[in-house]
Design a protein around this nucleic acid. Structure first.
Ligand code: FES
Ligand code: FES
Lengths: 128, 128
DNA sequence: ATAAAGCCGACAAGAATTGTCGGCTTTTAA
DNA sequence: TTAAAAGCCGACAATTCTTGTCGGCTTTAT
Protein backbone atom coordinates (compact mmCIF):
# COMPACT_ATOMS: atom_id res chain seq x y z
CA UNK A 1 0.00 0.00 0.00
CA UNK A 2 1.29 3.41 -1.01
CA UNK A 3 4.30 1.64 -2.46
CA UNK A 4 5.83 3.20 -5.53
CA UNK A 5 5.60 0.82 -8.48
CA UNK A 6 8.58 -0.15 -10.59
CA UNK A 7 6.63 1.08 -13.55
CA UNK A 8 6.48 4.63 -12.23
CA UNK A 9 10.04 4.50 -11.01
CA UNK A 10 11.21 3.38 -14.44
CA UNK A 11 8.98 5.84 -16.23
CA UNK A 12 10.17 8.80 -14.22
CA UNK A 13 13.80 7.77 -14.50
CA UNK A 14 13.48 7.47 -18.27
CA UNK A 15 11.84 10.86 -18.54
CA UNK A 16 14.48 12.49 -16.36
CA UNK A 17 17.10 10.88 -18.58
CA UNK A 18 15.56 12.50 -21.64
CA UNK A 19 15.18 15.80 -19.82
CA UNK A 20 18.85 15.84 -18.89
CA UNK A 21 19.78 15.61 -22.56
CA UNK A 22 17.44 18.48 -23.33
CA UNK A 23 17.84 18.33 -27.09
CA UNK A 24 15.99 17.50 -30.26
CA UNK A 25 17.91 14.25 -30.42
CA UNK A 26 16.08 10.93 -30.23
CA UNK A 27 17.25 8.32 -27.74
CA UNK A 28 16.52 4.65 -28.28
CA UNK A 29 15.01 2.18 -25.84
CA UNK A 30 18.30 0.30 -25.98
CA UNK A 31 20.17 3.38 -24.87
CA UNK A 32 17.76 4.35 -22.10
CA UNK A 33 17.31 0.85 -20.75
CA UNK A 34 21.07 0.34 -20.73
CA UNK A 35 21.92 3.60 -19.01
CA UNK A 36 19.11 3.42 -16.49
CA UNK A 37 19.16 -0.34 -15.88
CA UNK A 38 15.55 -0.80 -16.91
CA UNK A 39 14.35 -4.08 -18.46
CA UNK A 40 14.15 -3.40 -22.19
CA UNK A 41 10.79 -5.01 -22.89
CA UNK A 42 9.15 -3.42 -19.87
CA UNK A 43 10.48 0.00 -20.80
CA UNK A 44 9.08 -0.44 -24.29
CA UNK A 45 5.57 -0.73 -22.89
CA UNK A 46 6.11 2.20 -20.57
CA UNK A 47 7.38 4.53 -23.30
CA UNK A 48 4.56 3.42 -25.52
CA UNK A 49 2.07 4.56 -22.88
CA UNK A 50 3.85 7.86 -22.44
CA UNK A 51 3.73 8.36 -26.18
CA UNK A 52 -0.02 7.73 -26.27
CA UNK A 53 -0.62 10.64 -23.90
CA UNK A 54 1.81 12.77 -25.88
CA UNK A 55 4.49 13.25 -23.26
CA UNK A 56 7.09 11.95 -25.70
CA UNK A 57 7.41 11.68 -29.44
CA UNK A 58 8.58 8.45 -31.04
CA UNK A 59 10.48 7.88 -34.26
CA UNK A 60 10.85 4.48 -35.87
CA UNK A 61 13.77 3.13 -37.86
CA UNK A 62 17.50 3.62 -37.67
CA UNK A 63 18.46 6.61 -35.54
CA UNK A 64 14.96 6.50 -34.11
CA UNK A 65 13.90 6.59 -30.48
CA UNK A 66 12.14 8.94 -28.14
CA UNK A 67 12.29 12.62 -27.34
CA UNK A 68 10.30 14.79 -24.93
CA UNK A 69 7.19 16.17 -26.57
CA UNK A 70 7.49 19.48 -24.75
CA UNK A 71 9.80 21.47 -22.51
CA UNK A 72 10.86 19.86 -19.20
CA UNK A 73 9.34 22.76 -17.29
CA UNK A 74 5.97 21.85 -18.77
CA UNK A 75 6.02 18.20 -17.72
CA UNK A 76 5.18 17.39 -14.10
CA UNK A 77 5.75 14.19 -12.15
CA UNK A 78 2.00 13.93 -12.01
CA UNK A 79 1.72 13.92 -15.81
CA UNK A 80 4.01 10.92 -15.90
CA UNK A 81 2.57 8.95 -13.01
CA UNK A 82 -1.02 9.56 -14.10
CA UNK A 83 -0.20 8.23 -17.53
CA UNK A 84 1.18 5.03 -16.09
CA UNK A 85 -1.19 4.22 -13.24
CA UNK A 86 -4.88 3.81 -12.71
CA UNK A 87 -4.84 6.51 -10.12
CA UNK A 88 -8.05 6.09 -8.17
CA UNK A 89 -6.67 6.04 -4.64
CA UNK A 90 -9.83 4.95 -2.86
CA UNK A 91 -12.09 2.25 -4.19
CA UNK A 92 -14.40 1.29 -1.37
CA UNK A 93 -17.20 -1.21 -1.82
CA UNK A 94 -18.89 -0.10 1.40
CA UNK A 95 -19.33 3.54 0.37
CA UNK A 96 -22.69 2.87 -1.19
CA UNK A 97 -24.11 1.37 2.00
CA UNK A 98 -22.90 3.86 4.56
CA UNK A 99 -24.86 7.08 4.69
CA UNK A 100 -22.11 9.28 5.95
CA UNK A 101 -18.74 7.62 6.14
CA UNK A 102 -16.37 8.92 8.77
CA UNK A 103 -13.25 7.45 7.22
CA UNK A 104 -13.58 8.51 3.62
CA UNK A 105 -12.17 11.91 4.43
CA UNK A 106 -8.87 10.34 5.46
CA UNK A 107 -8.37 8.68 2.11
CA UNK A 108 -9.55 11.71 0.21
CA UNK A 109 -7.07 13.95 1.96
CA UNK A 110 -4.24 11.57 1.20
CA UNK A 111 -5.27 11.52 -2.42
CA UNK A 112 -5.18 15.30 -2.50
CA UNK A 113 -1.79 15.42 -0.78
CA UNK A 114 -0.23 12.94 -3.20
CA UNK A 115 -1.54 14.71 -6.27
CA UNK A 116 -0.56 18.11 -5.02
CA UNK A 117 2.96 16.89 -4.35
CA UNK A 118 3.30 15.22 -7.74
CA UNK A 119 1.95 18.28 -9.49
CA UNK A 120 4.44 20.56 -7.77
CA UNK A 121 7.50 19.01 -9.40
CA UNK A 122 8.45 19.40 -13.04
CA UNK A 123 11.18 17.55 -14.89
CA UNK A 124 12.98 20.83 -15.04
CA UNK A 125 12.91 21.07 -11.24
CA UNK A 126 14.29 17.57 -10.91
CA UNK A 127 17.31 18.05 -13.12
CA UNK A 128 18.31 21.45 -11.77
CA UNK B 1 -0.09 2.05 -6.76
CA UNK B 2 -1.12 4.41 -3.96
CA UNK B 3 -4.32 2.42 -3.66
CA UNK B 4 -5.78 2.11 -0.20
CA UNK B 5 -5.83 -1.52 0.89
CA UNK B 6 -8.94 -3.23 2.22
CA UNK B 7 -6.95 -4.05 5.28
CA UNK B 8 -6.44 -0.39 6.18
CA UNK B 9 -9.99 0.49 5.21
CA UNK B 10 -11.31 -2.26 7.47
CA UNK B 11 -8.90 -1.42 10.25
CA UNK B 12 -9.78 2.25 10.27
CA UNK B 13 -13.51 1.55 10.05
CA UNK B 14 -13.28 -0.82 13.00
CA UNK B 15 -11.36 1.70 15.07
CA UNK B 16 -13.80 4.46 14.25
CA UNK B 17 -16.59 2.12 15.28
CA UNK B 18 -14.99 1.62 18.67
CA UNK B 19 -14.27 5.33 18.99
CA UNK B 20 -17.91 6.19 18.36
CA UNK B 21 -18.93 4.02 21.31
CA UNK B 22 -16.37 5.73 23.48
CA UNK B 23 -16.86 3.55 26.51
CA UNK B 24 -15.16 0.97 28.62
CA UNK B 25 -17.35 -1.65 27.01
CA UNK B 26 -15.82 -4.44 24.93
CA UNK B 27 -17.15 -5.09 21.43
CA UNK B 28 -16.77 -8.48 19.81
CA UNK B 29 -15.45 -9.30 16.37
CA UNK B 30 -18.88 -10.65 15.55
CA UNK B 31 -20.45 -7.33 16.41
CA UNK B 32 -17.92 -5.18 14.59
CA UNK B 33 -17.75 -7.36 11.50
CA UNK B 34 -21.53 -7.44 11.33
CA UNK B 35 -22.06 -3.73 11.72
CA UNK B 36 -19.22 -2.70 9.45
CA UNK B 37 -19.58 -5.47 6.85
CA UNK B 38 -16.06 -6.73 7.31
CA UNK B 39 -15.18 -10.41 6.74
CA UNK B 40 -14.99 -11.93 10.20
CA UNK B 41 -11.79 -13.93 9.79
CA UNK B 42 -9.98 -11.08 8.11
CA UNK B 43 -11.00 -8.67 10.83
CA UNK B 44 -9.71 -11.08 13.42
CA UNK B 45 -6.22 -10.83 11.99
CA UNK B 46 -6.47 -7.07 11.72
CA UNK B 47 -7.58 -6.58 15.32
CA UNK B 48 -4.90 -8.97 16.45
CA UNK B 49 -2.27 -6.76 14.82
CA UNK B 50 -3.75 -3.64 16.37
CA UNK B 51 -3.66 -5.34 19.73
CA UNK B 52 0.02 -6.22 19.32
CA UNK B 53 0.92 -2.54 18.96
CA UNK B 54 -1.35 -1.70 21.86
CA UNK B 55 -3.92 0.39 20.06
CA UNK B 56 -6.69 -1.81 21.45
CA UNK B 57 -7.10 -4.10 24.41
CA UNK B 58 -8.60 -7.55 23.99
CA UNK B 59 -10.59 -9.65 26.41
CA UNK B 60 -11.28 -13.33 25.85
CA UNK B 61 -14.33 -15.33 26.82
CA UNK B 62 -18.00 -14.49 27.09
CA UNK B 63 -18.66 -10.74 27.00
CA UNK B 64 -15.15 -10.35 25.63
CA UNK B 65 -14.04 -8.34 22.64
CA UNK B 66 -12.02 -5.24 21.95
CA UNK B 67 -11.83 -1.73 23.35
CA UNK B 68 -9.61 1.23 22.50
CA UNK B 69 -6.42 1.19 24.54
CA UNK B 70 -6.39 4.97 24.89
CA UNK B 71 -8.47 8.04 24.21
CA UNK B 72 -9.59 8.64 20.61
CA UNK B 73 -7.79 11.98 20.58
CA UNK B 74 -4.55 10.14 21.19
CA UNK B 75 -4.89 7.71 18.29
CA UNK B 76 -4.06 8.99 14.81
CA UNK B 77 -4.86 7.49 11.42
CA UNK B 78 -1.14 7.03 11.04
CA UNK B 79 -0.95 4.87 14.17
CA UNK B 80 -3.50 2.54 12.67
CA UNK B 81 -2.17 2.41 9.12
CA UNK B 82 1.44 1.99 10.24
CA UNK B 83 0.43 -0.96 12.37
CA UNK B 84 -1.20 -2.68 9.42
CA UNK B 85 1.15 -1.95 6.54
CA UNK B 86 4.80 -2.33 5.78
CA UNK B 87 5.07 1.35 5.18
CA UNK B 88 8.26 1.80 3.19
CA UNK B 89 6.95 3.86 0.31
CA UNK B 90 10.04 3.67 -1.86
CA UNK B 91 12.01 0.49 -2.31
CA UNK B 92 14.32 1.08 -5.22
CA UNK B 93 16.89 -1.46 -6.31
CA UNK B 94 18.76 1.09 -8.39
CA UNK B 95 19.48 3.48 -5.50
CA UNK B 96 22.71 1.73 -4.66
CA UNK B 97 24.12 2.15 -8.16
CA UNK B 98 23.20 5.76 -8.86
CA UNK B 99 25.44 8.33 -7.20
CA UNK B 100 22.90 11.08 -6.95
CA UNK B 101 19.42 10.12 -7.99
CA UNK B 102 17.25 12.87 -9.39
CA UNK B 103 13.97 11.06 -8.87
CA UNK B 104 14.27 9.92 -5.29
CA UNK B 105 13.17 13.29 -4.04
CA UNK B 106 9.80 12.86 -5.70
CA UNK B 107 9.04 9.67 -3.83
CA UNK B 108 10.43 11.01 -0.59
CA UNK B 109 8.21 14.06 -0.75
CA UNK B 110 5.17 11.91 -1.37
CA UNK B 111 6.08 9.76 1.58
CA UNK B 112 6.32 12.85 3.76
CA UNK B 113 3.01 14.20 2.47
CA UNK B 114 1.19 10.94 3.14
CA UNK B 115 2.55 10.59 6.65
CA UNK B 116 1.90 14.17 7.52
CA UNK B 117 -1.69 13.83 6.40
CA UNK B 118 -2.26 10.60 8.27
CA UNK B 119 -0.68 12.02 11.38
CA UNK B 120 -2.92 15.08 11.31
CA UNK B 121 -6.13 13.15 11.90
CA UNK B 122 -7.11 11.50 15.16
CA UNK B 123 -10.04 9.17 15.74
CA UNK B 124 -11.55 11.95 17.75
CA UNK B 125 -11.38 14.28 14.74
CA UNK B 126 -13.05 11.69 12.55
CA UNK B 127 -16.08 11.10 14.75
CA UNK B 128 -16.73 14.73 15.57
C1' DA C 1 -18.71 -27.64 32.63
C1' DT C 2 -19.88 -25.22 28.84
C1' DA C 3 -20.29 -21.84 25.59
C1' DA C 4 -18.56 -17.54 23.95
C1' DA C 5 -15.21 -15.37 22.75
C1' DG C 6 -10.11 -14.24 21.17
C1' DC C 7 -5.36 -16.41 19.40
C1' DC C 8 -2.50 -18.49 16.07
C1' DG C 9 -0.42 -20.56 12.06
C1' DA C 10 -1.09 -22.44 7.79
C1' DC C 11 -2.79 -22.02 3.55
C1' DA C 12 -5.62 -20.97 -0.65
C1' DA C 13 -7.79 -17.91 -4.07
C1' DG C 14 -7.52 -13.91 -6.61
C1' DA C 15 -5.53 -9.79 -8.31
C1' DA C 16 -1.86 -6.84 -9.48
C1' DT C 17 2.71 -6.16 -10.76
C1' DT C 18 6.57 -7.20 -13.34
C1' DG C 19 8.64 -9.15 -17.06
C1' DT C 20 9.04 -11.82 -21.66
C1' DC C 21 8.25 -13.12 -26.38
C1' DG C 22 7.22 -13.27 -31.36
C1' DG C 23 5.97 -11.21 -35.16
C1' DC C 24 4.71 -6.88 -37.29
C1' DT C 25 5.58 -2.07 -39.38
C1' DT C 26 8.27 1.99 -40.32
C1' DT C 27 12.47 4.38 -41.38
C1' DT C 28 17.10 5.19 -42.67
C1' DA C 29 21.43 4.26 -44.81
C1' DA C 30 24.32 1.56 -47.65
C1' DT D 1 16.13 -1.66 -53.13
C1' DT D 2 17.22 -4.11 -49.58
C1' DA D 3 18.85 -4.98 -44.93
C1' DA D 4 19.19 -3.56 -40.43
C1' DA D 5 17.61 -0.75 -36.74
C1' DA D 6 14.40 0.71 -34.47
C1' DG D 7 9.39 1.20 -32.47
C1' DC D 8 4.47 -1.19 -32.12
C1' DC D 9 1.37 -4.52 -30.46
C1' DG D 10 -0.98 -8.31 -28.26
C1' DA D 11 -0.53 -12.26 -25.78
C1' DC D 12 1.10 -14.49 -22.04
C1' DA D 13 4.13 -16.13 -18.04
C1' DA D 14 6.28 -15.49 -13.47
C1' DT D 15 6.14 -13.56 -9.27
C1' DT D 16 4.47 -11.13 -5.53
C1' DC D 17 0.86 -8.97 -2.79
C1' DT D 18 -3.68 -8.82 -1.16
C1' DT D 19 -7.55 -10.82 0.54
C1' DG D 20 -9.81 -14.31 2.62
C1' DT D 21 -10.52 -19.03 4.95
C1' DC D 22 -9.90 -22.81 8.08
C1' DG D 23 -9.01 -25.79 12.15
C1' DG D 24 -7.69 -26.27 16.41
C1' DC D 25 -6.20 -24.01 20.61
C1' DT D 26 -6.69 -21.01 24.94
C1' DT D 27 -9.04 -18.01 28.02
C1' DT D 28 -13.02 -16.34 30.61
C1' DA D 29 -17.74 -15.56 32.48
C1' DT D 30 -21.60 -17.77 33.95
S1 FES E 1 -17.71 3.60 3.33
FE1 FES E 1 -16.28 3.77 1.66
S2 FES E 1 -14.60 4.90 2.47
FE2 FES E 1 -15.99 4.71 4.10
S1 FES F 1 17.97 5.32 -7.85
FE1 FES F 1 16.51 4.65 -6.36
S2 FES F 1 14.94 6.19 -6.36
FE2 FES F 1 16.37 6.81 -7.85
Amino acid sequence: MFKVSKKSQYGLRAMVYLAKKDSKEFFSLKDISGKESIPFDFLEKIMSELEKVKLVKAKKGIQGGYVLARNPERITAKDIVSALENTTAVDCSFCGKSKKCLTKNVWRKIDVAINKTLKSMTLSDLIS
